[in-house]
Design a binder for these strands. Sequence first.
RNA 1: GGAAAGGUGGCAGAGCGGUUUAAUGCGGCGGUCUUGAAAACCGUUGUGGGUCUAUGGCUCACCGUGAGUUCGAAUCUCACCCUUUCCGCCA
Length: 424
Amino acid sequence: MLDINLIRTQPDLVRQALINRGDKPESLDAVLQLDAQRREILKQSEQLRSLRNSVSKEIGRMADAAGREAKKTEMRQVGDQISALETELAQVESNLEAYTSVLPNIPDPRTPVGLDEDHNVILRTIEGTAPKPANPKPHWDLGTDLGLIDFERGVKLSGSRFYVLNGAGARLQRALIAYMLDLHTRQGYHEVYLPFMVKRQTLFAAGQLPKFADNLFHDAEVDAWMVPTAEVPITNLHGDEILDLEDLPKWYCAYTPCFRREKAAAGKDVRGIKRGYQFDKVEMYMFSLPEKSDDYLEQMREHAEETCRALGFTYRVKQLCTGDMGICARMTYDIEVWAPGCNEWLEVSSVSNVGDYQARRANIKFRRERGAKTEFVHTLNGSGLGLPRTLIAVMENYQQPDGSIIVPEVLRNFVGTDVIRKGE
RNA sequence: GGAAAGGUGGCAGAGCGGUUUAAUGCGGCGGUCUUGAAAACCGUUGUGGGUCUAUGGCUCACCGUGAGUUCGAAUCUCACCCUUUCCGCCA
């Protein structure tokens, strides 16, 4: 959510942001108009309320019955006017909210301007230590040959885009989750285990609703929503709270499965386990002082890169352009790892500074000193790597000519073996 | 799923239609006293919106949430949510 005061005082800044993101700037005009209307109605109704409040007190003190009745009649009319204005106000506010709740964040000035992914900037590519397989097989062949991935049974259970991980495949995924959580804990994050279903308000606060309802799984009866990312519940851990200055920054990490309907991506990446309705992810998250969030973004990106390096991946860091960033973000880095089998760069992490955009929606504040005005915190989120893609990268990068997979060193304690061979 | 009790400021807790501007206590902050501290005493202490002559003034809203009754609602009515205890069921 943007500050309505900012929209009011610097509409051109907001307009340019919309244009740079490839959105229509007309909604801004609607917001400005509705905001003016809202304040006008508010002024009128508050004056009437003030009048009614004072006269009602008078009535309570009046001895004269006839005079009292006269005042009551008068106030009854004022009451009718107030409710008419309130009805109007509710309508205006709900229209206003419909517009403001989907206005995207204003990109950081350093975010490159561009309307689509072709304008993302590749900042650097880092060569990994993993062995370079000669004729790499894609994970869908490798995984089935070794019996690690069972596509048929996944489909039997749940339909297309679902799979079952078997034996060492399941263990490798669990090892990655455990390793990443341990690493992030060493990096300073506080691990939490979260609900995988959340309320509507929780999704609103994280910026997923109302705009992206189509991409979420939802039980209508109890209004429970499956989380599309751990970012959603973590954002709301401190919803409606005023945090103590000395508690900032707060760093969290969490493993959750993520559920996405992927309506927009239907027909895309259908082969293998790259994209599904359900996937696992370890997430990093920070609540920070506004003036520190730029620095923390770099730190969090570095933390995600550390995971890639520890796993020996060849990876590259991209900065997303205005048109490719999510609506909450001011600045985003994507990290992509090289998967030699399917011969493509896989996005395994997206690290964003969302400024006060989510804090405003979730109402998360802090105070610099006793008696000072409350301010919104900044929040940042980043994948501590998305799982199926990291799993793909391990399998494809560490495959050997005989069809076995070497377990990356940092995972061996968790997996319990150095090499994954067929039939084990 | 059933029964009962209950949701009021940072916390505890009163108020159950109009001197409530939400009592009182604790805690916090400032002060008096003191060599210093404690104690005692005095003062102060919520969030959000609107507006203006703007470090402040005026005003509106907020007592779980939403509707309703009334000139006036923390207080009355209805619905819902949540908490606690007990029973049932269950991993």
